[in-house]
Design a protein around this nucleic acid. Sequence first.
DNA 1: TTAGCTGTTATATACAACGTATAACAAGAA
DNA 2: TTCTTGTTATACGTTGTATATAACAGCTAA
Lengths: 137, 137
Amino acid sequence: MIIKIDLASEIAIYIQLKNQIIEGIATGQLRPDEQLPSVRQLASDIGINMHTVNKGYGQLKSEGYTLIHKRKGVIINNLEDMKDPSYSEKLEINIKPLIAESICKGLTESDYLNLCKGIFKQLKKGEINKSELNPNR
Amino acid sequence: MIIKIDLASEIAIYIQLKNQIIEGIATGQLRPDEQLPSVRQLASDIGINMHTVNKGYGQLKSEGYTLIHKRKGVIINNLEDMKDPSYSEKLEINIKPLIAESICKGLTESDYLNLCKGIFKQLKKGEINKSELNPNR
DNA sequence: TTAGCTGTTATATACAACGTATAACAAGAA
DNA sequence: TTCTTGTTATACGTTGTATATAACAGCTAA
């Protein structure tokens, strides 16, 4: 998977990194048990500091997306273990300001929902091959 | 309208302020031509610095939500002038990471869309009386 | 005119977050 | 042993956030 960092973006580098890996998991480009590049390797590849990568990796781990495999290093966690029943509560807090803004900016509810559906469609493209037996660990 | 600031929140104060005013506009609690408290008054009311309020107000103005009326101070802009046809493009960039995260966290597309619908319902409650003739200016 | 309010700007300070840099550690692999 | 892994510590510079004091122009009302 190719990671693209925009140094001109207002979004912190470690957040951009984190978002792209999460998106990779959501689309199925990154599968459970798949290993991520080492912090030093990835930092070198995309031309940023090791600690910035480490910060992103650290958050991915603490939020359940990855875990440390003694042999492989950082690997993608099992999809079941990522799930969080209480997530929708945190999500609502993040979505609310976006919807309020959207209303003011002239978007209808249908406009907004269709935009979301489009993003789901886009992300689910890679999900066809996502069916998998639980890999050996 | 009551503004509530959470000093323990990780969200910057001027962003919290901005979000609540935008939400107020979306729900109809704040109507066009209605005046907002002065930067000094609001700062005093909620116990924060004048410049923090000014920063939030400044962004609201530059994003079209408010304008400066020589007599009244800061007032809510006309709803038509708030609209921005290109907004959905910026919106998509903000929504995408949330949807990717939601997929990983086990939410289905229906779960997500229903959550959005619920927020729309909640925000639109105050919209019944939002029908208005263009007020004098 | 004077006094008081408005938004706005300037300057300064303190703190936290971000990103970089160098270095070191324990643990496992070759 | 040598190399790589994640991890931690320390330090530095930059930027963003929030505060504080002060001043300005423009308008309102006494």
